[in-house]
């Protein structure tokens, strides 16, 4: 029997090509939608007990294991946003020489390789750059007990840390109190800083104190 429907497979294939193709889940994400904000904290800490803070005047840039100190426009924006949010939550900004309860450090981290980010490298270099002596606690080491998310990093991120200086003498080490990660497209834009830091604080309602 002669096939009268020889055209149908071609027609159907065309239809499938137009309508049946898989959608790329990431194709329609805006830069804002691509960003994630992750916070983690020391659950044993009572953030009400902390009253003052100091913030580093520049940013540590960790670029594939090489650490430099920088102060770009976006760094400035993140530092300012952090200061503003801490003050809104009741913490008082003091000079690092005035025995602040909390030390805040902002870090810009780059990893140009694909795969899982090696947080060990990050912390190995961390103590070397932000020497505890900077906070007036020379000789102490940092204690970083948290294990952060395991998402794949393809570009870079801002990592913001709060350290416990209030109890450093008692603990004989500077414990990490809180960490915020800002990842995704546009994280190094000045315009992103306020939105990102606001998001970090919005999901950290425990970060507040009264005088």
């Amino acid at each position: 029997m002669k096939n009268k429907f020889w055209f149908v497979p071609g027609l159907f294939s065309s239809l499938l090509f137009v309508t049946g193709c898989s959608k790329d889940p990431l194709q329609n994400l805006t830069p804002e939608e691509s960003r994630i904000y992750t916070t983690s904290y020391d659950s044993s800490a009572n953030f009400q007990d902390y009253k003052t803070f100091s913030i580093a005047d520049s940013v540590a840039v960790i670029d594939n294991g090489v650490v430099v100190k920088q102060h770009s426009a976006s760094d400035e924006a993140y530092l300012n946003a952090m200061q503003n949010m801490m003050e809104q939550r009741g913490y008082l900004l003091v000079d690092k020489n005035q025995s602040p309860d909390i030390a805040i450090a902002v870090n810009r981290v780059y990893n140009t390789t694909t795969g899982f980010f090696d947080y060990g490298d990050y912390w190995d270099y961390y103590g070397g750059y932000w020497d505890p002596y900077y906070w007036g606690y020379g000789g102490y080491g940092y204690n970083v007990p948290f294990v952060f998310g395991v998402y794949q990093i393809t570009e870079g991120l801002y990592s913001i840390d709060m350290f416990d200086l209030k109890n450093a003498t008692t603990n004989q080490e500077i414990n990490l109190l809180w960490n915020g990660l800002v990842r995704g497209e546009g994280v190094f834009n000045v315009s992103t800083a306020t939105e990102a830091v606001n998001a970090l604080f919005a999901q950290s309602p425990y970060l507040n104190t009264t005088h």
Binding site: S22, S34, I36, T38, S40, Y41, F146, F148, G149, S204
Partner: peptide, 16 residues
């Protein structure tokens, strides 16, 4: 997303 860890994100699920 973990013990004492929170993540703010747009969630996308894709199933084929």
């Amino acid at each position: 997303t973990g013990d004492h860890e929170a993540t703010s994100a747009v969630l996308t699920n894709s199933v084929e």
